[in-house]
Amino acid sequence: MNNIILSIKDLHIKIGDREILKGINLEVKAGETHAIMGPNGTGKSTLAAVIAGREGYNVTQGQVLYKGENLLEMSPERRSREGVFLGFQYPVEIPGVSITDFLKTAINEHRKYHGLEPISAKDFLALMNEKKKLVEMTSNLANRSVNEGFSGGEKKRNEIFQMAMLEPALAILDETDSGLDIDALRIVANGVNKLRTKENAIVVITHYQRLLDYIVPDVVHVMYDGNIVMTGNKSLAMNLEKHGYAWVKEQLDIS
């Protein structure tokens, strides 16, 4: 029981009058990597946003527990400090704030929350250098403003770099593979793989099986129309790739 990191029960979400999530159930344990697949507009990103604490979503039913605590009551910053990380599908550009300042502030807020002293400049630099290697990031990138003028690949790499710096217990990676060429995909996926441990959990949201060749999931879920309609192992992803999402619909109609 202790190793359950995320437990979602019968989660219903509305945006305005429209119901987007219609009773999601999901359990993710420490050491596991889950993949959530599905066509556009089925609520995958909504699920990620709700876990991270984005405003504008109305929880009408159900609960989300993170390490046994009610996640939905926490502010986004507290979720982060408790170890929840969202890799954004569209990372935000913040002109004027350098990656260094941004991450140093974030890390120190995490440390303060856990009753630790601020990180020293020397230790921070060492940490940056160590983690930069993980995503093969060039050093001058860190001096640039957060995501400003970054290519699609650089932005996604920067997300994984931040994940590496913050060492979350639960990382939700929302379409981290979109907009990446083969080389960038390999770099990002390798970065994620290096961050997998027995203590943390990763949820990868993707359209394509391609990413899962690199980040091999323990569990694969298929979302359709606001619900998780299939759960299986890696072969489920292969079947999807082979038959397309129409196949999911057929299977649903049969049952």
């Binding site: 986004p76 910053e77 982060s80 954004f88 935000v92 913040i94 807020e109």
Partner: peptide
């Protein structure tokens, strides 16, 4: 969007506002 992005990394809302405002004038 930038405020949420920063908060999602653990930065307190007020601090995020300060950082963004500073960034705005830093040009």
């Amino acid at each position: 969007e930038a405020l949420f992005y920063m908060r999602s990394r653990g930065i307190d809302e007020q601090n995020a506002r300060t950082l963004l405002t500073y960034a705005f004038v830093s040009v």
